[in-house]
């Protein structure tokens, strides 16, 4: 079954593990894209043409999904750090529940901030 077996688990923790991997890879690809994107800062025209394309409402869906990936990966990462230091294993269910709520709140807030900044 190979690496597909990373994605077949059913407990909420297994799902969190799977999503951590997927969002991690998405963020890694974004990091590479971001570094390439920043090359455009060498030229005003290029930078402005790129920002006018990407900092826009058409791109909002992607940005919002990226915020979701980032917030989930960050918060879930904090949860993993706590557990990997050997703490709170017995309380892992409520901790995961809080994480889900915080992720959704963070996502909505982050998307709202971005959307407002995009203006009309």
């Amino acid at each position: 079954m190979g690496i597909l077996s990373w994605f077949k688990y059913r407990s909420p923790f297994g799902i969190a593990f799977m999503l951590q991997r997927i969002t991690g890879v998405v963020l890694l690809l974004y990091l590479c894209l971001h570094l390439v994107y920043l090359t455009s800062l060498q030229s005003k025209e290029l930078y402005e043409s790129l920002t006018s394309l990407t900092v826009s409402k058409q791109f909002f869906v992607f940005d919002s999904l990226l915020i979701l990936c980032g917030i989930f990966h960050g918060l879930n990462g904090l949860r993993i750090v706590v557990h990997e230091l050997g703490f709170a294993h017995e309380k892992r269910k409520p901790i995961l529940a809080v994480l889900v709520v915080l992720t959704i709140l963070g996502w909505v807030l982050g998307s709202y901030i971005l959307y407002t900044a995009l203006g009309d």
């Binding site: 923790f13 297994g14 969190a16």
Partner: peptide
């Protein structure tokens, strides 16, 4: 181990293997 916690979820003796691994790591 990347703390998927699946082992602790299925252990019929409720041993929490994931916790043992992290304590070992510590």
């Amino acid at each position: 181990c990347h703390s998927a916690m699946e082992c602790s979820e299925v252990c019929p003796k409720q041993i929490e293997p994931a916790k043992a691994i992290q304590l070992l790591r510590r």
